[in-house]
Amino acid sequence: MKKEDAISIGKINHKPRKISKNQRNFIISTVSVITFLVIWELVSYYKVINPLFISSPLSIVEAAATLFVDPAYWNHIGVSAYEFTFGFLLALMIGIPIGIFAGWNQIFNAVINPFVSALYVTPKVALLPIIIIAFGIGITSKIVVVFLMAFFPIVMSAQKAMSTLDQNLIKAARSFTATEFQIFRTIALPSTVPFLLNGIRLGLGQGLIAIVVGEMYASTAGIGYHLTHAGQNLKTAEMFVGVAVIAISGVLLTGIIGLIEKRFSSWKPE
């Protein structure tokens, strides 16, 4: 061993420096995005497509620079963030217990299943007119829409998770005189985590759609509101800033879920 070490210290490593696959893929992705932006800029600059429709990366950056120093724009972001957070947390707090309980208790499942299955496939935005009538064009109606959109994927995933429990584990637990509650806590709950996070991820995407559509339909503030306005006034660049804000929020939130997932599945095979 010692001898080998000494040799490897003295010599120059002739092997080409290898970068990890992750690094390589990151570089490829970055290049891909940059290429896309450059082509977009050129297409717009040489008016291959009317810049009114597609704007251009530079004008979007420019628009972003002006918007982000404007407190009014931050107000829009704040309103949307508030609506989303409130509605989404509500969906989590109500959806997870209902889903888990439905998966655990067959009778409760039979009671709610018809509604959950039907509403899961219903486009909740179709209810917007009623929601606006009931809750007004303010913040409350958006919270309701976000809640409705995010709620069902979360319920469904929790329910599904509970129905796929490993019966062998339950049998083993019972042999050690486990109570129903112990089985629930030590087997059912940990088993649901991956499914739940998947449902939460789906719910997240739905919630973001809800915000934009809700605000577009009827509102007085918010990113969706500002975005619609910008579009109607042919300020394409400003509209794209709104799109980017939503996209980046989505990516960040999904990233957070990814981190939580990692934390809870550290035991999983790579």
């Binding site: 083993a172 005189t177 940990p190």
Partner: peptide
């Protein structure tokens, strides 16, 4: 009359909790 502390079983499938070491 039911499962008890005086008995334990080694199952055909290992039935270990995958998230526990």
């Amino acid at each position: 009359e039911g499962p008890g502390r005086d008995r334990s079983m080694v199952f055909q499938s290992p039935s270990l909790l995958p998230w526990r070491n």
